[in-house]
Amino acid sequence: MRRLYAILIAAGFVYMMLSFLGVVPGYGNIDLCSRVSSSFLLKDVSEQNAKNWLMAKGLETKSIEKVYGEKNKEDGCANVVTSIVVNYRSFDTLGEVTVLFTAALGVGLILGGTRRKKYGLLPNFVFRESTRILVPLIILFGAYIFVHGHLTPGGGFPGGTIIAAAALLLYLADEEFFLSKVSTGALEGSMGGLYVIAGLLGLAIGGYFLYNFLPTGRVGNLISSGIVPIVYTFIGLKVGAELSGLITDLHSEEG
């Protein structure tokens, strides 16, 4: 009987969402120029006349605009998504980082323990040996991901998770392995603090919180687009530390 009601309600919900879909423009045929992201792609946000954009009147659209390899554009990242994530809407990311920070903190408070929970199952030999080889590589790959955040897809968050995966691997491989919460906490806190300090520096120098005060360099180079790579490394390390801290908590039990 309950299932029948549940199906009915779920179907009702689906019907409702479908009828809401009428509002959203069809799948795929979106006119980018009517959206803000066109100027993100063209990296000419400062030129746009914000007032009549707000009034949704004047949308200057350029047809072709060479971006790659240009010198000190408004924002140097080749990967436009990263430019949005860390430069144009970096406040979101700051919020994002705090969510993860709260989650890790919360898990620490709820499950906080000082000793490693022993499950007593010995991983097989091949697994133990291969982790010793793989872990450095994984960490290197993770570091590569968040260092090249502004060039290649992926950035601080995927990089950090890869590092945390390495930590998880170590946990699985070895019963005795136990990361001390103090170290992960310190790393996490310092990286987060540095990120906010970078924002405050932007406020001090450029007059706006999280302002990109370093030169943006040439689009496509490794050292380009100001503080974006630096911030992404902070985020990468922070997320790595947090998630490994999270895994430690999940593996820990009362003292």
Binding site: V36, S39, F40, V45, S46, Q48, A50, W53, L54, N87, Y88, R89, S90, F91, D92, G202, G206, G207, Y208, F209, L210, Y211, N212
Partner: peptide, 13 residues
Amino acid sequence: IHALGGWKPPFGI
């Protein structure tokens, strides 16, 4: 208002 990161409202936060 305070435009974060120096980007004008409809674009930045």
